[in-house]
Design a protein around this nucleic acid. Structure first.
Lengths: 131, 131
DNA sequence: TTTAATATATGATTATTTCATATATGTCTA
DNA sequence: TAGACATATATGAAATAATCATATATTAAA
């Protein structure tokens, strides 16, 4: 999932490149959405972009869903779709809910780490510095 | 840098494994420390663990410093050390300060993304749910 | 009929992190 | 003085994660 800051990359390209994402942040996001009701890959894509305000790599999304099923956090089955092609519909499992809970706790730590950075940053740069 | 949440991994191992870190978070952290004064790799290791409260992979730290030098965010030179072996001493550059600023802005976005997740999470789970 | 939207998926590559290991210097202690 | 330990820098190899490109199928609309 694309979040966070822009920068030049390490490679030769002069193109600015997005980086600084929270690794595997998409997983708790998916689980949160599925905890409200079953959904399918493409539907999750739209919800993730709406709720997170960020672009999601569609290939990554489908691959992640399969991996999450391997982990036992979700289960899927083909659902008939009258208005289009059939969809693989995902449901959250008990194990998935438990992971979501752990992820939330852990993201609190991530959050406080970022805030610790901000505190230090403000302390250093807030008062009339040249930069 | 080790932060964030624990989980089982995708592979066969049953060992819990740390994941969910903010990618390349160590870079703005290093730059913040260097903006306060020059330092060397091992010294930064200690400061990062003290200020961030987290373990840092030493190999990753040294490699990152070299990459940051390639990017022009820091410059280094060998400094004589009377009490031990010589150290490679790093100084932040103007370009490094500029990147630090951009990173801070970007981390604000990361932060608000995590908070948006928390809001949704609380809305779904706060009121007397079974889980 | 061809374009677009919906829908799922994988191959290949790149990026990033972690784990293991190698090297060097200085201090302390048995 | 030999060995252990802390300090100090660094790279090889592997694992992990994300991105980019592409393939396929279905339906609606132009």
């Amino acid at each position: 999932m694309i979040i966070s800051y822009m920068s030049i990359t390490y490679n030769d390209s002069l193109q600015p490149k997005v980086f600084g994402t929270v690794q595997r942040f998409i997983e708790p996001c998916i689980l949160l959405l599925l905890s409200r009701g079953t959904s399918h890959g493409y539907g999750l894509l739209e919800d993730l972009e709406k709720h997170c305000g960020e672009k999601v790599d569609i290939g990554n999304l489908y691959r992640t869903l399969r991996k999450m099923e391997t982990n036992g956090w979700v289960k899927s089955e083909w659902g008939v779709n009258k208005t289009g092609r059939d969809r693989r519909v995902y449901t959250i499992t008990k194990s998935g809910l438990a992971f979501l809970e752990r992820a939330a706790v852990s993201l609190t730590q991530t959050d406080s780490l970022i805030h610790r950075f901000f505190e230090g940053y403000k302390k250093t740069f807030q008062k009339g510095t040249s930069l």
